[in-house]
Amino acid sequence: MVVGIELERVWLAFTTMTHDWTHLRELESESIYILRETVAQFRNPVLLYSVGKDSSVLVHLARKAFYPGPLPFPLLHVDTGYKFKEMLEFRDRFTKQIGARLIVHRNEDSIAAGAHPLKLGVARCCGQLKTAALLHALDKYQFDAAIGGARREEERSRAKERVFSLRDAFGQWDPRRQRPELWSLYSGAIHEGETIRVFPLSNWTERDIWQYIVQENIPVVPLYYAQERLVVRRNGTLIPADDSMHLKDGEVPEKVWVRYRTLGCVPCTGAVESRATTLEEIAEETGVAKISERSTRIIDHGANTMEDKKREGYF
């Protein structure tokens, strides 16, 4: 009798799993586990909310992880002052709607001094408005863990990144001190002053992200949808041209059907030509995309690599 019931149950488990347990459920479950480990192991975690699609997925997963409770950490947006206005509108509306605690942090000194990529160069501008601002915010609020939406697939130097990535007291990443990660045992053991960056989306690809956004109907910034926008062509990249301060002399804006695959600062985020106006169309386009999404981010170009930035404390 008992054996019969057990067998039936195994069979049931099996058929249910094979029908419903998609790769997205597997990824979702792993990410929820990681988010819960973060809250269990750290005194004062924060979720780095960049307003982009990966952040949106991350917040969605965090709400699932702690349901029926509220989010057990605030959201931190490092605002460079050059973010798209659509991002800021979306940020304020969305965080209010879900009742999240939002902290906006800006490097006011550098912004007041007129930091701009055309003036400082992309690397130094990022260093001041993003990296320095982030490290300052972590220190100001004494956060010991910062949850981010980075994925290993995004960029070559991220392929070996840990899920719990150790940063020293200066916020820097030292490849020699990264811990082995086995099974699902993530160690949050740190010394005073050290912090951990947590990457719950490590195993997701851009395609997984869009498929999941479609499946869960997750709201994203309208900039991800294609429409006719004013852009200029610069070194093979389509740069938004709504504001002439971001243009070089002689550049002439044109109207093109484009959308954004990643969202950063206006002067440094390239658009891609697209007619995808629905989530399904975006997911489909991503499924057959031939160029990696980070190619539209000026920050990854040039001699100063993502690896250098990470070492300095960049996300």
Binding site: S157, R179, S202, R311
Partner: peptide, 21 residues
């Protein structure tokens, strides 16, 4: 081929994760 650091000084555990579908 991954990090410059891995070539220069060696990351402690250098398992790289890759994805395809």
């Amino acid at each position: 081929d991954g990090l410059r650091a891995e070539r220069e000084q060696g990351i402690t555990i250098d398992v790289a994760y890759r994805y395809f579908a």
